[in-house]
């Protein structure tokens, strides 16, 4: 049975193309949520195995969404990969993986190979 991935990102075009790539080989079942305010409800209904979460979003930002998931007993164990185009001091170089407070952070743009191996690693561990 394929693993379920929930993408929470307000960039509709990006999420559409990301889903096409992830679903291509039939490895994953992908759900998109472009409105962060609905993220918790969507996640509760979908029960993903992994979440790809954008950081800068209108309404609730990625941090707010992650906190809501942490407070939900059924979602708190679900691993989260943060995908962000945010440029900050000490930004990780494109393609590298950083760990921050138990959350994996990948900078946008991200190559599919990097993203796939990151997803595989995390799913294997959990």
């Amino acid at each position: 049975m394929s693993k379920k991935i929930l993408i929470i990102d307000d960039e509709a075009g990006f999420t559409k193309l990301l889903r096409m790539n992830l679903e291509r080989n039939g490895d994953y079942e992908v759900m998109i949520e472009n409105h962060s305010v609905h993220a918790l409800k969507t996640a509760q209904a979908f029960q993903p195995d992994l979440v790809l979460l954008d950081l800068v979003m209108p309404g609730l930002d990625g941090g707010d969404v992650a906190a809501l998931f942490q407070a939900d007993p059924k979602l708190k164990k679900v691993p989260v990969i943060m995908l962000t185009a945010l440029v900050a001091h000490g930004e990780t170089s494109t393609g590298s993986v950083a760990q921050a407070a138990g959350v994996t952070v990948l900078p946008k743009p991200v190559e599919m190979a990097t993203l796939r191996s990151c997803i595989t690693d995390i799913l294997e561990k959990s």
């Binding site: 960039e11 075009g13 990006f14 193309l17 990301l18 096409m20 790539n21 291509r24 800068v56 995908l83 185009a85 945010l86 440029v87 900078p107 946008k108 743009p109 991200v110 190559e111 599919m112």
Partner: peptide, 18 residues
Amino acid sequence: VAHEVKNPLALLLMGVEY
């Protein structure tokens, strides 16, 4: 501005990958 440019770049990379 970098953030606003990186988002379309991320989309482009997704398209190229596909």
